[in-house]
């Protein structure tokens, strides 16, 4: 078993466009205080930010969990539904169901989940009507 060094939990509200990215900004600041390669921090930050935006624009709200291990950073993004109808489709680049409000924010390119997967060393997604759960693991070199 990996030893957990630190764990932070951030609540993310649905449709809270004004604060979109606040959790990921805090996550990035936390990671900058420990000695991790900046390119790893950037990968975590981008994946976290996309996941946070997804919770805000697509879900009924949820939480982001940052776990720091000796050799790995893990982000969990768990929301309270309504779930993704077709996960395979959502994972394909360019597919989007984003609202106009989300598009006005600069999102809705259909790159969120593909981006998250791209930046992850290990990526898991499960989704049903009760919620979508992402696990994003990024190894520290």
């Amino acid at each position: 078993m990996r030893e957990l060094i630190k764990r932070y939990v951030f609540q993310v509200q649905a449709n809270d466009f004004d604060n979109a990215g606040a959790a990921s900004s805090t996550i990035k600041r936390n990671l900058k205080t420990i000695a991790i390669n900046p390119s790893i921090v950037r990968k975590v930050a981008v994946a976290s930010y996309e996941a946070e935006i997804n919770i805000i624009i697509h879900s009924n709200g949820g939480e982001m969990v940052l776990e720091i291990y000796e050799d790995m950073i893990s982000i969990k993004a768990n929301d309270k539904g309504p779930g993704i109808q077709d996960v395979d489709l959502a994972m394909s680049e360019g597919f989007s169901t984003a609202s106009n409000a989300a598009r006005e924010l600069g999102f809705g390119a259909g790159m969120g989940l593909p981006n998250i997967k791209k930046y992850s060393d290990n990526f898991k997604i499960t989704s049903n009507e009760k919620g979508t759960r992402l696990t994003i693991d990024i190894m520290i070199e």
Partner: peptide, 13 residues
Amino acid sequence: NNVQLIRTAEMLD
């Protein structure tokens, strides 16, 4: 022209 522009830049350094 919104804060997500800055957030995005922040995440990417």
